[in-house]
């Protein structure tokens, strides 16, 4: 495995353990490390990768796979995938293994309740970091807020919404507004 792939693995291994809920909670820190700390990608490349990871099916954390691929090809993709999924996979495997003997109802409830505000804080932070790194200005922020409102208020299919966002910008571009 090339040295860069090892560095990618080292970035994603600890991040695995802070992906509470979905992959969303780790996005802010991925951005901090990949863009700001290591300079492996520009902010706009990162936002592009984020958009593709939302367009594609499968677990949201595949954003890591895509980042690894963009930085260092197949080895990078492999390292990032193992890093982001590995530790938590071992953790849930261990819990599934001992579950039958594990009288953990109270602890489980405390975990679920206690992690709720932390997950909310990290996901909101991820949204903030992404909004801040948009280079499409107020039109883009407006579109992001409009899509938030649509998702909260209607049972709209997210894929349709993302396609709509792409179409909306393409149209604005063609008429010369963006």
């Amino acid at each position: 495995m090339p040295a860069i792939a090892l560095s990618i693995l080292v970035v994603f291994l600890p991040l695995s353990l802070v992906t509470i809920g979905g992959g969303q909670s780790a996005v802010a820190d991925m951005h901090r490390q990949i863009v700001d700390l290591h300079g492996w990608m520009t902010a706009s490349q990162f936002v592009d990768a984020f958009a593709i990871s939302r367009l594609a099916p499968g677990p949201g954390s595949l954003l890591a796979t895509l980042i690894g691929w963009r930085i260092a090809g197949p080895w990078g993709a492999l390292a990032a995938t193992i890093g982001i999924f590995g530790p938590t996979a071992l953790l849930i495997y261990g819990v599934a293994h001992i579950w039958s003997r594990f009288e953990g109802a109270r602890l489980l409830k405390a975990l679920e309740r206690g992690l709720r505000p932390v997950a909310a804080g990290t996901i909101l932070a991820a949204s903030y970091v992404l909004l801040a790194s948009l280079d499409s200005g107020w039109i883009g922020r407006g579109l992001a807020l409009a899509s938030t409102a649509l998702l909260m208020a209607t049972p709209i299919n997210p894929l349709l919404l993302i396609g709509g966002g792409a179409g909306c910008f393409a149209l604005l571009h063609l008429v010369g507004l963006a």
Binding site: L55, T148, M152, L161, H173
Partner: peptide, 16 residues
């Protein structure tokens, strides 16, 4: 441009 539009809508997904 299209990807940037998709990203904006996708941020809505994260924010919601």
């Amino acid at each position: 441009v299209a990807l940037a539009g998709a990203a904006c809508a996708a941020i809505g997904l994260s924010l919601s």
